[in-house]
Structure formats: C-alpha cells, structure tokens
Amino acid sequence: MNIPTNIATLIVGVLVTLISFWVGQHHGLLPVAASVNAPLIDGLFDTMITLSVGLFLLVQGALIFALFKFRKPKDDETDGPPWKENLPLEILWTGIPAIIVLGLSVYSFEVYNSIGGLEELAMQAHHHSMKGAAIAAPLNSTSQSSPTEPRLATIGFTAPANVKGTGVTVDVTGLQYAWIFNYPDSGITSGELHLPVGQDVQLKIKAMDVLHAFWVPQFRLKQDAIPGRETELWFKPTVIGTYPIVCAELCGSFHGAMRSQVIIEPQSDYDAWVQQQLADSAPSDHPTIASAGQSQSAETRLAPRLAEMGISELTLAQVHPHHDG
C-alpha cells in the first residue's frame, strides 16, 4: 500500500494529531503537583496521554468507520478482497510502536533517575541484613545509626548525593491502621506530617505489622512500608497546602480509613510547630503521659478509633520514641 496522498486522509491525520496534543495538555486528570518531582512525572504522563489518544483515535476511528463503510450490502453473499499480508505496512506497524516504547523507556528512565530512584546505584551499598532485627530493635534506631555503620541497600527514592543530609528526615511507621511520624532530630512524634516548603525531605519508612504503602497523590510518590525492611522516599514539597496521606496497600479491614495528612507550611510556621510540640512534651519524663498533652499527637488523633480498631495503648507506646533517656 502506498503512503496515502488522498486529501481526506491528510485531514484525518492532521485532526488526530491536533486532538492528541490538545488532550495531552488539557486533560486535567491529575491533582495539584506539589513536589519538585511531580511536574516531571506529569510531563511523562502528558506525553503518554498524547500518544495514547492518537493511537486510540486511529484504531477506534478505523473500527467505527469500518462498521458503517464496510457493512455487507444486502443480498451480497460474495467475499471481501483476498488481502493476506503487506510487508511494508507490517514493518511500519511493528517499527513505529517499537520506536515509541523505546522512546518512552528512555524518557521514563530519565525521570526515574531524576526523582532519586536510582541513587542506590551510585552509593556503595553495604548489604547488611536487618531482617527481623528491625522488628525487635527500637524502631528509631536504624535512622540514628552512625554513618560508619553498614546499612541495607536503599529501596525507594533517595536524595542525590549533593543534597544528602540537608533538610528534614522523618521516620515513618505504618501500623494497623495509622501512620506515626517521628522526627529524630527533635524527638517529636506526631500523627500528622508537618514539613517546611522548599526543603529536601527524606522519609525512612517502616511497618509494624503488615504491608502498608505511603502515598501522597499530590507528590506523585508511593512506597510500600514493609515489615522487617526499611524503605525510603525523597522529595521536595513546593506548594504550601494540606494534602492527604493515603495507605495504598491492603492492610486489613480498616485499610480505607488509614489516612493522615501532610501539612506543607512556610519555614516560620514549621519552626513554630516544632517549638510547640517540644514545649508540650518537655515537662514530662514519661512518653506515654507526655503524649496526652500533645495537640496533634498520634494518640490524641487516633483516640476515637483506637478501641474500634483494637489497637492497645501499649502498641502506640512502642512506636513512641524514648528520647527522654
């Protein structure tokens, strides 16, 4: 089959292209992009939507056109044309998808690398097994380990070497059915995640009981929390606001209720929040008692649900850091 020169074909081609690009830019399917990674992933998605809409229109258009144009005429019991193959056409529809997926692979690899997904390749990964041990050990011990101590190769997303160690580090613990956030630098424990805008954030994620997954749709980031194994997420929030933290891995009957929120605020508000948290917990020397006074502590926030979910005080006390010594 020669390349179509027919005007109608040309118009169809131009229209499909225009519609594809327009939809790719105006689909409005994704929520606010609130982290430095999110626009990269959105760009990738827009590209894939553009390509998909084009292919969708071509195939569906051909099928619907055929439905009307090639319907059997009444009383015509003869066959259609005996076309069995066409090598140039088949090379074309093998080659073009091959080039598209190759391009998408390279593009996706680039995006994946720039959101910190391949940092572990750059690091000297020491394979130190912490399976099982993490469950028995105090949960905040691994993140406070000295730099010389060998650690498990990263799973998830890590800060590039040049920003490593700056910004905020938070230990995240998933348990049926809540997220607990522990700030090792200040010793704060909270049921909500407060973060200063524009700072690099490194989350170290653990699970107490079953698999969970930490997901903030507005950051386009998700990582499973795995019992016995630490995983990581790195990002830089860019837009001030309050976003949902959603558990995305089935974790039991209250899985759908396992939600929290991340509050991205200006540095001054964040500092004030840290001071408030420290002031609230300072007078006490017992963590469980101290927590009762914290306005946003995990225990307070969860209290109405605890009995219903069967989580004991003791379980929560376990994840509470013993920073008082």
């Binding site: 990269l40 992933i41 990738l44 998605f45 894939m48 998408l104 996706s108 995006v111 994946y112 959101i115 997904g117 997954a213 997901w215 749709p217 386009r220 980031l221 998700k222 990582q223 995305a248 891995e249």
Partner: peptide
C-alpha cells in the same frame, strides 16, 4: 512506565 506507576499503583 515505572515513574508513572509509582503514582497510580494500587
């Protein structure tokens, strides 16, 4: 595409 799947997985 892994980076996109990270968002929509599950």
């Amino acid at each position: 595409s892994a980076p996109f799947d990270i968002h929509v997985h599950d």
